[in-house]
Amino acid sequence: LSDEDFKAVFGMTRSAFANLPLWKQQNLKKEKGLF
């Protein structure tokens, strides 16, 4: 994903996403069907 796409899908920047706990990152990915 480009940075723009990433922001559109997750509603946050990559750095904000990277600061989330791993389980939360994985839950978000599953919610968005990216897993």
Rank of each mutant, 00 (worst) to 15 (best):
L1C: 02
L1F: 15
L1P: 13
S2Q: 08
S2G: 07
S2V: 04
S2L: 10
S2H: 00
D3R: 06
D3F: 00
D3A: 12
D3C: 13
D3E: 15
D3N: 10
D3T: 12
E4L: 15
E4M: 15
E4C: 11
E4N: 09
E4H: 03
E4A: 05
E4R: 15
D5K: 11
D5T: 09
D5Y: 04
D5I: 04
D5P: 01
D5F: 07
F6I: 02
F6T: 05
F6W: 09
F6H: 02
F6M: 08
F6S: 03
F6N: 00
F6G: 01
K7Y: 03
K7D: 03
K7R: 07
A8F: 10
A8M: 10
A8P: 02
A8W: 03
A8Y: 03
A8S: 08
A8K: 14
V9F: 05
V9C: 07
V9K: 15
V9W: 04
V9Y: 07
V9E: 12
V9L: 12
V9A: 13
V9G: 04
V9H: 09
V9I: 09
V9Q: 14
V9S: 06
F10A: 05
F10D: 06
F10Y: 12
F10T: 08
G11K: 08
G11L: 01
G11R: 02
G11C: 08
G11V: 00
G11T: 04
G11I: 00
M12A: 01
M12N: 00
M12W: 04
M12V: 04
M12F: 11
M12T: 05
T13Q: 13
T13G: 10
T13I: 00
T13V: 05
T13K: 07
T13F: 01
T13M: 03
R14G: 04
R14W: 02
R14E: 10
S15E: 13
S15L: 10
S15H: 12
S15P: 09
S15K: 09
S15D: 07
A16R: 06
A16I: 04
A16C: 10
A16Y: 04
A16Q: 13
A16W: 02
A16K: 10
F17I: 01
F17Y: 12
F17N: 00
A18I: 04
A18P: 01
A18Y: 04
A18Q: 10
A18N: 13
A18M: 13
A18W: 03
A18F: 09
A18K: 06
A18E: 15
A18V: 10
A18S: 13
N19S: 12
N19H: 10
N19I: 09
N19A: 12
N19K: 13
N19P: 01
N19E: 10
N19V: 07
N19M: 13
N19Q: 13
N19Y: 09
L20P: 00
L20G: 01
L20D: 01
L20R: 00
L20Q: 06
L20A: 03
L20W: 00
P21R: 00
P21G: 03
P21V: 00
P21I: 00
P21H: 00
P21F: 00
P21T: 03
L22Q: 15
L22C: 09
L22K: 02
W23E: 15
W23T: 14
W23D: 13
K24C: 07
K24P: 00
K24Y: 06
K24Q: 14
K24E: 12
K24V: 12
K24N: 05
Q25Y: 00
Q25W: 00
Q25D: 00
Q25H: 00
Q25E: 01
Q25C: 02
Q25L: 00
Q26E: 15
Q26V: 13
Q26G: 08
Q26I: 06
N27K: 13
N27V: 09
N27H: 08
N27Y: 12
N27M: 13
N27A: 14
L28C: 06
L28S: 01
L28K: 01
L28R: 01
L28W: 04
K29G: 07
K29W: 06
K29V: 07
K30W: 05
K30N: 07
K30Q: 13
E31H: 08
E31G: 06
E31N: 09
E31D: 05
E31K: 05
E31P: 03
E31Y: 02
K32G: 08
K32N: 06
K32P: 02
K32M: 09
K32L: 05
K32D: 03
K32A: 09
K32H: 06
G33P: 11
G33E: 09
G33H: 07
G33T: 12
G33D: 10
G33R: 09
G33N: 12
G33L: 06
L34M: 10
L34T: 14
L34N: 13
L34S: 11
L34F: 01
F35Y: 11
F35D: 13
